[in-house]
Amino acid sequence: MLKAFEKTTVFALTTPSETALIDLKKEELAIAFHWFLRLENSKYKIPYPPRIAKNHKSHGEFLHALFVLCEGVHSRQRYLGLVIPYPDAMTWFKVLLDEYEKVLIASVLNADSIQDRKTDQRKTTDDESKKKRGCPKKYGERFNLADVETWHSPDERTQIQQTTCKGRLLNITILAWHQMLMRGTKHQKMYRHPFTLLKIHVTDDTNQSLWKPMWLIVIGDLRGEISLTVANHCYRQRFDIEHMLRFSKQRLLMTEFQTPDVEHEENWIRLVMLAYAQLWAAKDLATHLPRPWERYLKPHNDKIVTPSVVQRDFQRIISEIGTPLEFGLQSH
């Protein structure tokens, strides 16, 4: 099989540089052919250093796939009874290999002419010669949150009113800029993740600012389906969630239950959430039970009943309402 590769096609060479390039192509093809022999026989040893041979393994796999194709063609030839002057699969492979070698050498001979055509095109086109090299521009004009002069006109604007639990009226103005980008890092390409930038400004009924403007971003493929009002409302829920988690850890033993079983831990979290929901449901039944250092406070001086206040009086509430177990015993 190795003898089939030793015969090479002779080309008329013009320059020493082309001769060197063609010799290099032949050398690469020879290494690939040794890989082909290695794939045919795993005990075959490639006569090249491993650091050189490993770079041509994929080329050898291509030649092996080509040989398998030739075997299939030869089998098809015998099955159909065709008379073709190629008696075996190796002859088929030799013919295709010669053509493949011609293509490799022709690519070397045509490289200079192709390069010359590209050079002529660059010279005849003034615009292409003025193009800057490097990565295409990805970012637009600078947008600095602290500098109003850098802000362009918002893409969307909305105004809503909300009333707090204490009856305070709030005027909320939301400005939105779509398709914004931020600078990323080498490993985090943030230009691939556009987002919607929101500026939320809250004033009272006298148009006086209550707090500094709050900046939010809405990021993700479905960000266009979230309205500005919904985005603001969802972020406001963050404070209630954080207070709930803090209270659950300190007063409802959320983190005290230790178990290696994830299912048991999830059940415990559900139980804590159920206890928190019961405190919320009983807020209208709780009475004021101040601490010794809270005696000076007037009962129900605030319209908002905290979970801690309800928890102090929850034993009395349960004793008056009863439990499902007590109702079950009475029914019997």
Rank of each mutant, 00 (worst) to 15 (best):
M182E: 09
V230S: 06
K283I: 03
T206S: 14
A277M: 05
R38K: 15
W151I: 03
T124K: 13
A89F: 10
S42D: 13
L69A: 10
K131E: 15
M190G: 01
L96S: 06
H243A: 08
I269P: 01
R76I: 15
K118F: 05
D261P: 02
D261Q: 01
M273I: 10
N144T: 08
A281T: 12
K57V: 07
R51H: 14
Q162E: 15
E61C: 03
E266M: 09
K54S: 12
P307K: 06
V148I: 11
E156R: 12
P290K: 07
T164F: 02
L297I: 13
L2P: 01
R51I: 07
V83I: 10
T173R: 04
E28D: 04
F195M: 06
P154I: 00
L145T: 05
K7M: 14
W268I: 03
F33E: 04
D302V: 02
A111T: 08
P299F: 03
G322Y: 05
T19C: 00
F247I: 05
Q208I: 13
T158F: 03
P50L: 04
E242L: 11
C135R: 14
H193E: 15
K54Y: 02
L279R: 03
A32I: 00
L24F: 06
C234S: 14
L253A: 14
D116N: 12
G224E: 05
Q315S: 12
L329K: 11
R295V: 02
V202T: 15
T196K: 04
L289P: 05
R133A: 12
T203V: 10
R183G: 11
L274M: 08
D116C: 07
R316H: 06
N232T: 04
K283L: 06
F36G: 01
T259L: 00
Q179N: 15
F93D: 02
L170M: 06
S58N: 15
V218E: 01
W35C: 03
D23C: 05
H233N: 13
T164N: 00
D313K: 09
H178F: 14
I318F: 00
P194R: 01
